[in-house]
């Protein structure tokens, strides 16, 4: 177990280190001098050189890299070119919004995805199963930015029920505590619904397939012969076994979920890391992009590690094989 966890940590560190290095190298391979861009076309060669010297851009690449890495490890990602604010403070402001969105959407996705998949795997209503299959396949195929647009069309403009932009209303500061809470939840609703609906499609399909496969497994025949009730059978026996691939899927789906968040945040102007990154990219704000790439790599890698640990919790057999090695 310990050896497995240590290996996992090592691999995770390697991925983060790799992403950071790749990002850094790409930034410096890219055409155009950031200082020339910052100072504008009127700047003389001398001014550009002075600015490069001031930002320590005239030193060898390897030295700059080690320097940036050392500062990044201490949480110092430099200042945004576009706004002049410290990137660390921008990120500190942005990450809770992303975390709330991702965690809530994960919880709802797995709750409903597993329930729908388990129902489909065990129902005798072929029509219901077929309809749910069509629905989940379609949801799974939808790009988040388009589904978000459709939901805005319906809930914001047709029904005039939910807001489509930002994390809070303009009048949020004048509301009571409970009013502010409701306002926040109303703003959260559409981005959360978009991410969750897409997630449910994939998860339900996966759970249905996993549980279908185990329907005739010997342990279920034995349980049935012992007279175990239908509900207990699904929850205690079938679901428990089907959870192993589902938890593995959770780890594998994290990069996709993060990608989805980038698009969904930018559609709904949700002030998270994804929005920050898209704005950084559009403004060519290198320090912000570099930092956001680092943070997202860390988030994805940590999520994968947690999923690996969770597999051990769900399936004690996997722990044993780790020890045996």
């Amino acid at each position: 177990m310990h050896r497995g966890a240590a290996l996992g940590l090592l691999r995770a560190a390697a991925v983060v280190f790799g992403v950071v290095t790749l990002t850094f190298v790409l930034l410096h391979l890219a055409p155009g001098d950031p200082m020339q861009r910052l100072l504008g076309p009127a700047a003389t060669a001398g001014q550009v050189a002075a600015a490069r010297h001031a930002m320590a851009l005239d030193r060898p690449l390897a030295v700059q890299y080690v320097d940036w890495l050392g500062r990044a490890l201490r949480g110092d990602f430099g200042a945004s070119i576009a706004t002049g604010r410290s990137v660390a403070s921008l990120l500190t402001q942005a990450w809770p919004a992303t975390a709330i969105l991702v965690l809530l959407s994960l919880a709802l996705t797995y709750l409903f995805g597993i329930a729908i998949g388990a129902y489909q795997a065990n129902t005798r209503h072929r029509v219901a199963d077929g309809l749910l299959t069509v629905g989940t396949v379609a949801l799974n195929a939808m790009p988040g930015y388009w589904l978000g647009l459709v939901l805005v069309m319906f809930f914001t403009y047709r029904l005039r029920l939910l807001p489509a932009f930002g994390a809070s209303g303009l009048d949020a500061d004048f509301l009571s505590v409970s009013g502010r809470m409701v306002d926040r939840l109303r703003h959260l609703a559409l981005p959360l619904l978009t991410l969750t609906l897409i997630g449910i499609g994939g998860t339900a399909r996966f759970v249905r397939a996993a549980m279908r496969e185990s329907r005739d497994a010997p342990y279920l025949v034995v349980a049935r012969a012992k007279g175990v009730g239908a509900t207990r059978m699904v929850i205690r026996h079938q679901l428990r076994n089907a959870l192993v691939p589902v938890v593995t899927l959770l780890g594998l789906s994290l990069p996709a979920l993060f990608s989805g968040t980038v698009f969904v945040e930018s559609i709904f102007a949700w002030p998270g890391v994804g929005s920050l990154m898209v704005q950084g990219v559009q403004a060519r704000d290198y320090p912000v992009v570099l930092a956001a790439a680092t943070i997202s790599a860390v988030l994805v890698v940590v999520g994968n590690l947690l999923a690996e640990l969770l597999v051990g919790v769900v399936d004690p057999r996997s722990r044993r094989t780790h020890d045996d090695r």
Binding site: V15, V19, P255, F258, S259, F263, M277, V281, V301
Partner: peptide, 13 residues
């Protein structure tokens, strides 16, 4: 393990 969209956004930038 590399977040694909992040890389895509970066290169596009």
């Amino acid at each position: 393990g590399v977040p694909r969209v992040v890389l895509l956004l970066l290169l596009a930038a």
